[in-house]
């Protein structure tokens, strides 16, 4: 099949970018979207042009590295997928495809489709962990966790940190990302102990990083490749209020 690509090219954070047009006509419909991008880059290199820089690594939807707006949607038109899992069979022959980086003030563009998502790491650094140094823990079966609790904690913990939630949010809010970690750790007895401290620090860091307010439009849940529920956000809100009210 043949596709007409309009890809965002930008040298660095300080330079203005723009959409550039590319034609690609040897596209196989079993190709993944990123393999299509590989094919394009191969052609660009051989023509002596600079290839399109884009983030990618595991190509099986779990590392959270790849992320781009494809036809104006985070990770493309199919919900629940990362860009690397999107296949060209989802597009029609001759289609025009727009490709842009994830955008948010807190995600500056590094080059082309590559963005800086280190703000996510800093949110985790603020408190997204359980204070348990190596060697301290007791026997694993000492504290029981019901099947349901473990599964629910897993649902929250499954976040891959790709940033699609921020990219698709009209306010560039990081509420889904932040809340998933807060909820994961608040749900289990091991993490409950420092839940109050954690939520206060993580929320305050989220704000400092320049993410927007959550308006509960729920677009994040729709675009999340792991289907992280927006109820995590409600959980964060609850934990936050509780922590503030019960603060010494």
């Amino acid at each position: 099949m043949r596709v007409h690509l309009k890809i965002w090219r930008q040298k660095d954070a300080g330079t203005a970018g723009k959409l550039m047009d590319y034609e690609l006509d040897n596209v196989d419909n079993h190709m993944s979207f990123l393999e299509m991008m590989d094919t394009l880059n191969e052609q660009l290199i051989l023509k002596g042009e600079m290839p399109v820089e884009f983030d990618h690594d595991c190509r099986e939807g779990i590392c959270g590295t790849c992320g781009m707006m494809i036809n104006g949607q985070a990770h493309g038109p199919v919900p629940g997928l990362t860009a690397c899992q999107l296949h060209m069979r989802e597009f029609e022959d001759g289609a025009t495809i727009y490709v842009e980086p994830f955008r948010a003030a807190a995600f500056p563009v590094k080059r082309d489709l590559k963005v800086d998502r280190s703000a996510f790491d800093r949110i985790i650094q603020a408190g997204g962990f359980i204070t348990a140094s190596t060697g301290q823990p007791a026997e694993a079966n000492t504290i029981l966790i019901t099947h349901e609790t473990a599964e629910s904690a897993f649902d929250s913990a499954a976040c891959i940190g790709c940033g699609a939630c921020v990219a698709t949010c009209k306010n560039s809010s990081a509420a889904l990302f932040t809340s998933a970690k807060i909820a994961h750790l608040a749900k289990i007895p091991q993490g409950e102990k420092e839940a109050a401290k954690r939520v206060l620090k993580m929320v305050s860091r989220m704000d400092e990083e320049g993410f927007g307010h959550c308006s509960n439009t729920e677009a994040c849940e729709v675009e999340c490749p792991q289907g992280i529920s927006v109820l995590n956000i409600a959980r964060m809100n609850w934990e936050y209020t509780k922590a503030n009210l019960l603060k010494d």
């Binding site: 707006m69 727009y98 948010a104 560039s172 320049g210 439009t217």
Partner: peptide
């Protein structure tokens, strides 16, 4: 929120949420 967001050149994010929520 105006300060936290950056405009897309091509934006089709409306697919993912209800118009009135936005």
């Amino acid at each position: 929120n105006k300060r936290t967001t950056v405009k897309y050149a091509y934006d089709n994010r409306k697919q993912a949420s209800k118009w009135y929520s936005r």
